[in-house]
Design a protein around this nucleic acid. Sequence first.
DNA 1: GATGAATGAGGTTTCATTCAT
DNA 2: GATGAATGAAACCTCATTCAT
Lengths: 191, 191, 191, 191
Amino acid sequence: MAVKPHKAMRKPRADSVRNRERLLAAAADVFRTGGAEASLEAVARRAGVGIGTLYRHFPTRDALFEAVYRREVEQLSELAEALALADDPVVALREWLRAGIRLVATKRGALKALALAVDSSSDVYAFSQANLTRAAGLLLQRAMAAKRIRDDVTADDLLHVLIGISLMGKETGSEEKVSRLVDIFVDGLLE
Amino acid sequence: MAVKPHKAMRKPRADSVRNRERLLAAAADVFRTGGAEASLEAVARRAGVGIGTLYRHFPTRDALFEAVYRREVEQLSELAEALALADDPVVALREWLRAGIRLVATKRGALKALALAVDSSSDVYAFSQANLTRAAGLLLQRAMAAKRIRDDVTADDLLHVLIGISLMGKETGSEEKVSRLVDIFVDGLLE
Amino acid sequence: MAVKPHKAMRKPRADSVRNRERLLAAAADVFRTGGAEASLEAVARRAGVGIGTLYRHFPTRDALFEAVYRREVEQLSELAEALALADDPVVALREWLRAGIRLVATKRGALKALALAVDSSSDVYAFSQANLTRAAGLLLQRAMAAKRIRDDVTADDLLHVLIGISLMGKETGSEEKVSRLVDIFVDGLLE
Amino acid sequence: MAVKPHKAMRKPRADSVRNRERLLAAAADVFRTGGAEASLEAVARRAGVGIGTLYRHFPTRDALFEAVYRREVEQLSELAEALALADDPVVALREWLRAGIRLVATKRGALKALALAVDSSSDVYAFSQANLTRAAGLLLQRAMAAKRIRDDVTADDLLHVLIGISLMGKETGSEEKVSRLVDIFVDGLLE
DNA sequence: GATGAATGAGGTTTCATTCAT
DNA sequence: GATGAATGAAACCTCATTCAT
């Protein structure tokens, strides 16, 4: 039987849970449409809750941001794990970059969050930082172990390239250009 | 006989010229530190002029932005012309990217402008668009003519890479990482 | 069974009500002293609330204006109803004009609103338009029915006179002059 | 031979005179279109001169205002003089009010100036104050001397009525209503 | 005298954040 | 817990006015 802490973590109220979900969905929406500087009131409004409720759930803008973006991070790292099982580690790498870019492309808000996770020292992003680095590292190590790519590249580099190319890919019809850039970059990685 | 405009352009006041310069410098500074959404009042403050003066010189944020960023563009394209004279076109390419990134790194404001110039259709940026494409094209053509690099890369791609890597390089001490990324990318370009 | 709106109107916060009152009082004051273009910040300041609070209650200057002025209109039309019970309809008319002018004189802000209500086609003022016309018509009809005054005067005319004389009476110590003008005008009305 | 003051009043420069005229015309225009609070820069712009020039000619807004409006005042008082020669002093009175109202109706800016001249104590308006009072007095005295109207009305009252009815007459199609109001008022004046 | 640049006060408006209910 | 009102800092922008040329 589990030890019970002095102050029991009580089951959260049903509406509290629902509100949290709504806020996350609303935030994803609003950040996607209005960019990462969109007003928190807009988020609350769209979620159909009071601004106070937003603040209770996410005391800072960053906290909300992180929560929204944690989902993307998780998808990205699950993808890495899946691809790590592929036959060709270079193909896996290429695929991961492409998929990652595609993912980010559909969620505008995520981009800045991604960038923050890599760049910033804010510990709100520690989780994502770790998670993403692990995912990228996984793929790199496999490729390096197979002596297929140069060994002076770090997981961090890979993340930066992902972000960089994503940042570029905001144009219309950039799909094919992005693809070419990924190719060039991966070609540059080859031994 | 010199062409004379209908209403002769009177000699600009000394302080007007000085203020314009100061504003541009201040804007470059402020945009670098605070991003492209930094407040115009901060710019005026740093330039040591009244907010009204800023507005007289640059009636909209975009006007200021464009003016600041025209300088970077000009520097960048002059650099391309200089490097076009170098012996090794691949080295020239590498150098241009590095220098470009370094340039942008010191003037963060320019980055967004750069991105806009490439991405957006706003005709404020038509000048830069043209200018930069020409510069990048110059270097690419030389390298392609020498059969040193693959021929499916466009000037536009190069610009995107420049922007992309710049966007990544916002951390401190990224100098060496950026350098590595440029290398990887240029390696990918080689035939 | 009482009609219940879909989303029940929760009891307003005590301070909210208080602030609304204060704002209306302050606005009346400030508009009276400073005219209708007085700054909204001045209104907030005098009400002792933050400027944001003013904006929450009255999102536009017109909204505030209308709210302030609705009171005057109501007072004015209640007065007409009271006077309609007087013995002499001409005396009632005279009294109403005098009282109306006095009322307006103490609330200068209302003056422009009054003018707007009669002149403009803005539907914000439709309510007042109707209300005032009804009030003036009440008095006129009684006097006409008694064959005491000429019958080519309309409620609208009466309102215009009220406004006109009020507009004149901005000087200090005009009490007696205004009184004389009302007399002259009412004399002109007599059959 | 005239005494020559120590500092001779030299003949004004031709362009100075021209600018003054232009400014007056521009101001009349701008005040009519944009109301009395229109910006002085707009006036200068329309006159095609620098803002500094405007200030040299009219050091305060009031000074400009007064200069523009002096013309109307003069017309109004000339009219009074002309009408003083008419046979029927009551008709003259009626006519003067009507004409005055018509005059003001075509020059929006003038209205406020008129009101100021009567209401304010600003000595910029002393000239107009005097001029108008004289004009109104002329007509009143004739009518009183002929025992046609009550004797407790002052020139000041008459001016107020003129202003008041003008202020009312901003609606469209008010021509006929204004006319009726003037009639009523003049009827009220009759002995 | 004419010009138009410089200045800054002051108005408007928006939001992040706190707090009363 | 949820709600939304209150708050004020801060941005934007527009002139009136002064002053350098």
